[in-house]
Design a binder for these strands. Structure first.
Lengths: 351, 351
DNA sequence: GTGAAAGCGCTAACAA
DNA sequence: TTGTTAGCGCTTTCAC
């Protein structure tokens, strides 16, 4: 069951069989037909290892993710996969497995094993060693998500996205706007949250609106985290210092709490929505909530958001590295699209 | 940058270097140290292609999924990955890409290219051709999810799970129980939904409780689908025939609609919860809702569910095929665990 | 404990 | 258009 069998059966040479199978020019059509037929009959299956050894090309690209079970990563992987499949490449997945994962081993033992021809890194922040180790492989590389020094990157302009969100809220008349962001421990994502927060702060400052520090809350980029953050923001202490009198049952009075919350992800926004509902705060009547992502759940509940398309980003990234594998110059990748989708969770602030 | 370099630098033979690198016995400890050191200095990275060619083992296993961006699949992949990494295996992902994916090509061109030593199939239903094509590769194989004729399988006992859910509801006093299930088009999952529905129907019949056909609703295994199904069930026509008078605003009167809904997935249950909220139906006061899965979102909103652990299932599956790759007899895989987690969405029916 | 040599299954010059 | 001849980088008998 190798190329040789086909050669002997057809009475041709291995070389010709190889050429025929790969559809190279300069092989008689009849020969191609014959070879193909025999290969089929014999149930021939090419060995990627042998081909890889001979050519130095594995026809596979590695995708490195912090974790898989998060909306953004899963979607992005899907996009990368789609493009790879189109090109006849396989996708080998390197899951760093969150903070608990044995990241080091993952790196050395596998990713560098020339099993792949290129790497797509999903919003990773690498340390010095990792960076230089990867550089050493001379593989085409690109990162999706936060910009990483020295590497090409595809992703939305997070600062601009935050500005858009703030602009929407400001336009509706809001001035008391809180932010829910923070780090995603599981995701090991660092740059993106910072850029969104800075974008928020800058936009607010640009509009001359003050943001009390206590209105910058950590939602851990998760639904549960968002719910907790929402609880803190809406029921806990308001804008000011710790204890306040007359706020009945520990609940922030309407005049003290924000009239809008900008969340750095839809999942957190959904959490905030949950918190609001639990506290009996009407949305968007008493509180506006806006997220980032374009998560399906958000659509179902009518969440206003700045939607991005991680799948498209995955495709873009895959195309980029594939082109580079084929010898193209790295080239610049344009920023990914993000569009404001106004739905039912934002409206004018209460009077 | 091959094994040869190390050989010349150390003054040893390729054979010894190879042995040292792989930690085989019968190599002097000093030699091993020396080789390792030199390899490190040279930044040596083994070629999996060459090793694979020589041994016939790729040290990689393929994971075939209908789609990646679904809770169950993402979690399960994570589990498989964890186990593979432990064993020093790589994971190559074959995403069938939903109904739109070019399934055929995915099969022939890649999966069979002996790039992997074994296959883990995630709740797939294969047609004849696919089955026999896979058989032909003689690879160890296992499926996670619905049982598939001729293949080992890991997963919960869906019939039992459904019975547990029904038991819980019945125990609370419910008799008017509806079911939200249906097919997950994206997931291409067939057996599981049927088994859960049948389990539900059997359990109900066993308890002598009638289920009107209109109380079997399709929720497409998604949040949005669940919300739609919930709307239909709770606001649309009740148990009986189409139009009814006096049901005000097209809403099913409390006496006609179910007092409990069993959903074949947590995502659908969350959708039903959303529908109930929109209709102003109190949960669990007027309506109990139970799901299956153990989704994080469910935990956050207090959804009662039968939790399963897809990650553990992934690990189990990986272990099983890995063992088989190492020459072990296939062996029987015990059913995966599923545990009733009672939270706040189920309670006694309204009087 | 170590070395020499023969492949693993394919591709890639170079001839014919 | 097809065949010949070398490898790709590793593992693996079989000697030493």
């Amino acid at each position: 069951m190798g190329i040789q069998e086909i050669a002997t059966v057809t009475g041709l040479s291995k070389a010709t069989v190889s050429r025929a199978l790969r559809g190279l020019p300069s092989v008689a059509d009849t020969t191609v037909d014959h070879v193909r037929r025999v290969a089929d009959e014999l149930g021939y299956v090419p060995s990627s290892a042998a081909a890889g050894l001979a050519t130095g090309r594995q026809r596979a690209v590695g995708v490195v993710v912090p974790v898989i079970d998060r909306w953004f990563y899963a979607k992005a992987i899907g996009g990368v996969d789609a493009e790879l499949r189109r090109a006849g490449y396989d996708l080998v997945l390197y899951n760093l497995g969150g903070p608990g994962g044995d990241r080091d081993r993952a790196f050395r033992r596998s990713m560098l094993r020339h099993r792949v021809d290129a790497l797509v890194l999903l919003s990773l922040v690498l340390d010095e060693t990792e960076r230089s180790e990867l550089e050493l492989t001379r593989h085409p590389m690109i990162v999706i998500g936060g910009p990483t020094p020295g590497l090409r990157n595809v992703g939305v302009d997070d600062v601009a996205v935050a500005a858009t969100a703030v602009g929407h809220l400001l336009g509706l008349g809001h001035r008391r706007i809180a932010y829910v962001g923070g780090q995603d421990e599981a995701g090991m994502n660092v740059a993106v949250p910072f850029r969104r927060r800075d974008g928020f702060l800058d936009a607010m400052a640009g509009a001359g609106v003050h943001v009390p520090p206590s209105w910058l809350v950590d939602g851990r980029f998760s639904f549960a985290g968002g719910a907790a953050a929402g609880g803190l923001l809406l029921a806990g202490s308001g804008s000011g210092s710790g204890a306040r009198a007359g706020a009945g049952a520990g609940s922030a009075s309407a005049s003290e709490r924000p009239t809008a919350v900008f969340c750095a992800s839809d999942e957190m926004a959904l959490g905030v929505l949950l918190a609001a509902r639990r506290l009996g705060i009407a949305v968007p009547g008493e509180l506006s909530v806006i997220g980032i992502d374009g998560h399906e759940y958000g659509a179902a509940v009518g969440l206003t958001t700045i939607a991005q398309d991680p799948e498209a980003q995955g495709r873009t990234a895959a195309c980029a590295v594939l082109a580079e594998v084929d010898g193209a110059r790295p080239g610049v990748v344009p920023p990914a699209l993000a569009t404001l989708v106004v739905r039912g969770t934002t409206g004018p602030p209460p009077r």
